[in-house]
Design a protein around this nucleic acid. Structure first.
Length: 327
DNA sequence: AAATTAGGTTACGCGAC
DNA sequence: GTCGCCAAACCTAATTT
């Protein structure tokens, strides 16, 4: 009688926030597990290819190239090894390879152009634009990538995240996952995924704030995309939120490490499973701020973490209970 | 400010249709 | 395929301590 119900609970936990208990250590320290995820058979080469050791099959080769191919250690080496042209980037729909024509009516020396030359330039620009955005797919990409870029800078996440988001979006496009979904929705979801994958997670709430798509749809699309592309995502470790929230609250290092400590020990006791990572982190920070005599109110913490005071209270009660009153 | 309480919203999987 | 339903987490809002 009770059994099936229990099972459904667990299942629910796992899909919503993920189940912490089964992955334990790897999620904690591994953080950025791109490198860590080399298990026995699957290995990441220096080029960033994901290959299966025994068969030699390349599982994924479309990784980002964020810089020049060669490392140069002194000036002469730099001269000989640097490639012609800028490194390609995937945040531009044509990988940044086409010529761009400046909009200014000036020549290379800054002199303004004759009227005849000006109209010629006008025609050139027009064709340039037509060629650059040849077909609809390309235009989708261009729009999506510019959206990703816009949101990423609004969130203040590093460049690498945008690159990862771009790669994911391209894969989604290749696999025909966009059909029937809004470009913006998918673009936002890929950004969300990229943030998590790069270990600098933003909550769905935060992402939704800079997106034109509502939270609900972002979550739904994200789940779909990550499922289809097999982006295996671990649940976010609440510790990831501690530094950011803490600095927004002007809290000291002691509070932060105390909060981390609380998270660690309480998570071990299974208190995390099924709970919101942001709420969990917020509660730990609140508790730590009390213990270190740098008290913040629940309201303040709740605001930066974008959860309610009630949630903080609930988590906080459970946590101090589990810690056995540590003061 | 914090705690308590009550009631509403959400999303997931599942079985029925 | 989708309809209805469930349970748990979380939210809003009002009230009390």
């Amino acid at each position: 009688m009770k059994r099936p119900t229990r099972q459904r609970e667990r299942e629910y936990d796992r899909t919503r926030w993920g189940d912490e208990s089964e992955d334990d250590k790897t999620a904690d320290e591994g953080e950025l597990d791109l490198e860590n995820l080399d298990s026995d058979e699957v290995r990441r080469t220096a080029d960033g290819e994901l290959i299966h050791e025994e068969t030699g099959i390349i599982i994924e080769e479309d990784r980002i190239d964020p810089g020049p191919e060669w490392r140069a250690f002194n000036h002469s080496e730099r001269q000989s090894k640097s490639r012609v042209g800028a490194p390609t980037t995937k945040t531009m729909h044509d990988k940044g390879l086409t010529t761009t024509i400046d909009w200014k009516d000036k020549d290379a020396y800054g002199r303004s152009l004759s009227s005849e030359k000006r109209s010629q330039m006008h025609r050139l620009r027009k064709w340039q634009e037509r060629i650059r955005t040849k077909d609809a797919g390309e235009r989708n990409l261009q729009f999506a990538l510019s959206e990703i870029d816009r949101m990423a800078s609004a969130l203040g996440v590093p460049r690498a995240v945008r690159e990862v988001a771009s790669v994911i979006y391209r894969r989604a496009l290749d696999e025909d996952l966009i059909r029937g979904r809004s470009i913006e929705g998918v673009a936002t979801s890929t950004l969300y995924a990229a943030c998590r994958k790069e270990g600098i997670p933003r909550s769905l709430e935060e992402i939704a704030e800079v997106s034109r798509v509502e939270r609900k749809e972002i979550g739904r699309t994200y789940r779909y995309v990550s499922q289809e592309l097999g982006l295996e995502m671990r649940p976010v470790n609440p510790k990831k939120y501690v530094p950011r929230f803490s600095s927004e609250l002007d809290l000291s290092k002691e509070v932060q490490s105390k909060a981390n400590e609380i998270i660690e020990t309480t998570a071990e006791q299974g208190l995390l499973s099924g709970k919101s990572p942001t709420g969990f982190a917020a509660a730990a920070i609140y508790a730590a701020s009390l213990l270190c005599n740098e008290k913040k109110t629940q309201r303040e913490v709740a605001d930066v973490a974008q959860v309610t005071e009630v949630t903080i209270r609930n988590r906080y009660q459970e946590q101090i209970e589990a810690m056995d009153i540590h003061a």
